[in-house]
Design a protein around this nucleic acid. Sequence first.
RNA 1: GCGGGAGUAACUCAGUUGGUAGAGUCACAGCCUUCCAAGCUGUUGGUCGCGGGUUCGAGUCCCGUCUCCCGCUCCA
Length: 498
Amino acid sequence: MAQVSTSQALLEKIVSLAKRRGFIFQSSEIYGGLNGCWDYGPLGVELLRNLKEAWWRAMTKRGDVEGLDAAILMHPRVWEASGHVQNFSDPMVDCRACKSRYRVDHLFNEMSEKRLRAISKAANIESAISRTLVMQSRDLSKDELGEMITAMVEKNGTLFADLVKQELIPCPNCGRAGTLTEPRNFNLMFETYIGPVKEAANAVYLRPETAQGIFVNFLNVMQASRQKIPFGICQIGKSFRNEINTKNFLFRTREFEQMEMQFFCKRGTDEPLFEAWRETRWNWWRNLGMPESKLRFKPHEKLAHYAKAAGDIEFLFPFGYGEIEGIHNRTDFDLSRHQEFSGKSLQVHDEETKEKYTPYVVETAAGASRGFMAFLCNGYDEETVEGEQRVVLRLHPFLAPIKAAVLPLVNKDGMPELAQQLERDLRTSMKSFYDDSGAIGRRYRRMDEVGTPFAVTIDSDTLQDQTVTIRERDSMQQVRLPIGQVKEYITEKIAPPV
RNA sequence: GCGGGAGUAACUCAGUUGGUAGAGUCACAGCCUUCCAAGCUGUUGGUCGCGGGUUCGAGUCCCGUCUCCCGCUCCA
């Protein structure tokens, strides 16, 4: 329990710092906030952009991954093909007595055959079932019976309530009958309308993932870029999910940003490629400063309908482990479905066998917003220096919003002027910050708190011999070097990780 | 959606049995200051989340609502 409250306090400190120093603000705060939406402030947007830039470089510098930026709005049929229309809207019911919540299909899946038979009788759906029996000329299994009832319930709005009233569907948790509410639909996709007229025929969705924009452009990109299988397409962009519950600051939000890459390959090469990408992505997080001790790879036990293998890279947040990137072997599911729904071929020609085939896909789907929060949590540190507490954000220099602070040791003897001149010069190639307010120690600490890796100080020696000190954030160690070498020195240290 | 906790200055929080709001930090201006949150002076900033109600009078009591955190549920 002590651990829980400590970690909660930690998250609160991070949220507080994020707001005070301009990383994250709550959306529409002056109107009371908007649930599950957050705004990136001046420093936040720098960190986020640096994170996305690190990812983009890592992907596109390979030569076998092309970039893409697809529209957020897509043809509604895309989401039928992807399975989101069906799978993203689950009817759910609550137990009024014990407050448990269930998905309707789960309810019937886990019910005894005897009870399922009783329900099918009571609900007068035997005729429908017998029609199916005649059509297929065989008995329905228990699972099929459950699916049949689920389908009937979804079609007939009052059927479920009737069954509950007849005490045929008890709550699996508390066992009481007649306590379940009517099914309510939870559609996790945001809906909007194309054109000014709000009618069902014009409905489109805000994408719940960026991946589909890649799949539908697969042939366009391959032909335009003259890539050959195997190759990948990567994309960074906002996605939207109408989550029932938002949670944990930036971790579960309704609007979030993804960094996704789909790697198209031939069937049979998918498994080693899955392993290779898993390692590549793991190393990417490590190279940006994530310690091994706070990362883990967790294979999925239950696979989604599209996946052959799947797992998450998880980061140890203050509230526990949470996914920051999913790596999936999506097989040829998505391309096959889009071929089926669009009627257009998405096959490629195999030079060797002279056959056409639908490529397999290995997906890496990282959360930009989640990664942002992970780096914030990982970097946050408190330590005691000579009896005083120091808060320091240990961000990788490439991620740090501000790269260098330039400080006159005191505000006289021309130090401010020299410092301003240096800062103006640095500013042309990196985000820098000039500060002459307060004592030098206070200014160092201010910069520590937002993760600025270098602080350049102009002192009286500078006036004599044109040298300055550069203080490194984590060690607080200083080196002295000629003012003319500062830019080169820092530029080298803030280079992107390999 | 249910249960619990919380919303007062940019941040962290006081605010008595109801009498129209304070502290520290931060920020800003100035003084001071020659390397790790020193000190002094001054200043900005709040219709107490929002909306009703009770009352002569509500930060305080009542109702509703929004947001955040925790748990349950959910998370193709």
